[in-house]
Simulated assay, not measured.
Amino acid sequence: MRVLVCHYHEIALKGRNRGKFERLLVERLLQVVGDEHIRSIKRARGIILAELTPRGERRRDALARRLQYVYGAAYFAFAVRAKLTIPAITRAACSLIAAEQGATFRITARRACKQFPYSSQEVNEKVGASVVRRLGKKVQLTNPDIECSIEIRESEALLYTKKIRGGGGLPVGSTGKGLVLLSGGIDSPVAAARMMRRGMEIAAVHFHSIPHTSPASIEKVRALCGVLARAQGSIRLFLVPFADIQRAIVASGAKEKFRVLFYRRMMLRIAGALAHRAGAAALITGENLGQVASQTLENIAVIAKAVDNPILRPLLGFDKEEIIREAEALGTFPISSLPDEDCCSLFVPAHPATKAAAAAVQEEEQKIAVADLVNQAVSRAEEEEREAQWEEKEKAR
């Protein structure tokens, strides 16, 4: 029976607060992997060890695909255990290496228990010599076909040949809560995941213009929340009807060139009110400098002046290819690529302002019944709790 070993990096730097971060990482690991797959879990020095149930042992491949959503973890391994003797460690290493394809190998030992009578280098040499003799494989220290890691702990040795990358960063919930403006496009889910990686728990708000647009964007956002919720169990989603606000802005007579900026400022105000309801201290957007007319430096500054909430923009300096790569790795890209109609595509001016002045926008905005429209939208917002969704083929196993 294998044991799941979880290594972390950044948490190790936390000093006196380290225990709090470790406990939260344990909670998130159980949440992502599922109680039915883990018999017991404990913190050891510098690592977390999870005993798998028979079901967990059978579903190791499926569990490995889940582990990228455990933020706070650097990497995982399904390890075998051996007694703290060179013969026992050698037998385990030979068994692991024999099961792998390849002609070259290296042994990488790390001695966490300094009372063990052999140094890490001596373990490498002794075990490596036995592997050469018994299996006929060649030692190659650089880019070997097989790398067998050996961790010498206080009461046992842990051995594995494959590392599984974790989510990195900090455990979700360790640095507060944010509300992401989730459009259904490629950028905002990646922005949400970036902040989750920095320890933020998230809620989400989506603005739609039904009946002027199709309900496709709502279904996309629900599906995106199902992916993002893999890292925290569930996500609170607010669905805000925005068409009446757009019609009111058009009917107000305020300058057309500022219309998209009015939309964005209204969205931030509504999101700020909903963030308070959700207990979120910050707003998160997928804004990307220069990507569209509303995301020039001048317009970003004008839009931000609508609220006092901190606004986090983790993708501001990314290029589109970088964002797409992250969306593909996260699992949101296929959903985000589905066709839909963004609410901001409704009543869009032919020539939007790209370098608006705050004073000019605020003067024109006085023609709009801002407070009434915000209150109306907040009162009409629908709330849903979206649970984590995993691939159907994984569920069936």
Rank of each mutant, 00 (worst) to 15 (best):
L297P: 04
R313H: 05
R313E: 03
S336N: 06
Q295W: 03
I300N: 04
M267F: 09
F333R: 15
P314L: 05
I284P: 07
S336P: 03
R259C: 02
E298C: 05
N288W: 02
Q246V: 01
M267E: 11
L338H: 01
R277F: 02
A281T: 10
E328A: 14
I300W: 04
L268R: 12
A278N: 08
I284Q: 11
A306W: 06
A301N: 12
T332D: 10
V307C: 09
E256A: 15
G331Y: 01
G272E: 10
E322S: 05
R277V: 08
A275P: 00
L297C: 09
I323H: 07
T285R: 10
A282K: 10
I284K: 14
K257A: 12
K255W: 00
D308S: 14
P334D: 15
A254P: 01
G253M: 05
I300D: 04
I324Y: 05
S336G: 13
L315F: 10
A275F: 01
L283W: 06
A275W: 02
R325S: 14
N288S: 15
L330K: 09
L261N: 08
G279R: 10
L330C: 09
S336K: 05
Q246W: 02
A304Y: 00
D319R: 12
E298P: 00
K257M: 10
I303P: 03
A248L: 03
R259K: 12
R265D: 09
P314E: 04
V260I: 14
E298G: 06
I284W: 08
P334Q: 15
G279A: 06
R313W: 02
Q295R: 12
I284A: 09
A329Q: 12
A251D: 11
A293D: 03
L330S: 09
A327M: 07
I249P: 01
M267T: 07
P334K: 15
E256H: 12
K255V: 00
V260P: 06
A280G: 02
G253N: 09
G317H: 12
L312Y: 05
A271F: 05
R325N: 14
S336V: 02
K305D: 13
T285E: 06
F333D: 04
A254T: 01
T285Q: 07
Q295T: 06
G253D: 03
L315R: 14
M266D: 10
K257H: 09
F333K: 15
P310E: 05
A251C: 00
A306P: 00
K255F: 00
S252Q: 03
T332H: 11
R269W: 00
I324H: 08
L289A: 10
E298H: 13
E287M: 08
L274F: 08
A278V: 06
A281D: 07
S252M: 03
M266R: 12
F333M: 12
D319V: 04
I323M: 10
D319S: 08
M267S: 13
Q295F: 04
A273K: 15
F318R: 14
A280H: 03
A251Q: 10
T332E: 11
T332C: 11
A281F: 02
E326L: 15
P310N: 07
R265E: 09
A280Q: 08
T332A: 12
Q246D: 01
G290K: 06
N309V: 01
E256C: 07
H276Q: 14
A278D: 11
A293M: 03
T285I: 09
P334I: 11
